[in-house]
Write a protein that binds this DNA or RNA. Structure first.
Lengths: 147, 147
DNA sequence: GTTAACGTTGACGTTAACGTCAAGATATCC
DNA sequence: GGATATCTTGACGTTAACGTCAACGTTAAC
């Protein structure tokens, strides 16, 4: 068995692949989120770095700060798990999960309201005076009304 | 029928009720997100302002910027709907919805991974050398491995 | 009538997450 | 071997979303 030469990526390639800038990757490295190999001064990214970056970016989209993401990665890496207690790690992990569930509820509520509002608009049309009215009831809309 | 004297709120009351600071409410007003009544210089908040604030805060938790929230409120208020086309309003609204759905997918994926990781940790124990190993397989964990 | 509590408007400070240069090393192409 | 491309490390700039004063007005209590 020979080790398959897994291909590597330059900072520009990786950044481009994930729609970020090289500056962003360096910044993440400064914050200790990724630590690519080095060949001299040059950074060399492997596929594990890609996976890690993808995870980071998703966490960002979900609303976590880089600092929080760092903490979560520490949990994953168990670098922290060695120092603190396993139970603490578990507790943090679970509180993150319930925070995410709460956020998902918020998102669902927002989606519902926006959807309702879309339906409302689809049933709207302009009256002669230029005001929006409900196509069926003929009722005008005041400010704040849909909320 | 007499108009029920709906009670009003000072800036401190409203802020306190929603766990924000008065500064935050003034800031939101500067950004045009809320426009409370005035008695002289003093701001008077009504229940409609509460509803609006709650909506704003939820949108914030969901990850929208104040600017984006302002745009969405413009859609709701139809102040924008009068200037632009109804179809544009609908389009924006729907793109927001699909963005939210994508975000929800991200959240679900993150929850799944964190949950898996929690399960993993529960099955972990320290071997004699102080390394974490799987209680059943005895396999050690490397960095990046759970991701 | 003055102290206290609460309100107001500036205006500058702060943090996060990069952007945006500048200045230099290194490698490659022709 | 000079141009071009791509990398590096500082280091300062920027934007968002407020925090944090300062300086001042206004009711309510005593």
């Amino acid at each position: 068995m020979r080790k398959t030469a897994s291909h590597t990526y330059s900072i520009n390639e990786l950044a481009c692949d994930y729609g970020v800038t090289p500056r962003t990757l360096r910044h993440y490295e400064d914050q200790g989120l990724i630590s690519p190999e080095r060949q001299g001064q040059t950074r060399i990214y492997h596929s594990k770095d890609r996976v890690r970056l993808a995870w980071i970016l998703r966490a960002k989209r979900v609303g976590f700060s880089l600092h929080e993401i760092g903490e979560m990665l520490d949990l994953y890496d168990l670098g922290d798990g060695r120092k603190t207690q396993q139970s603490v790690t578990l507790e943090r992990c679970r509180s993150r999960i319930s925070a995410l569930e709460a956020q998902r509820d918020d998102i669902n509520a927002t989606i519902d309201e926006l959807t309702e509002f879309c339906d409302l608009i689809s049933n709207l049309t302009r009256a002669e005076n230029g005001e929006w009215v409900n196509r069926e009831t003929g009722e005008p809309l005041g400010p704040y009304s849909p909320i």
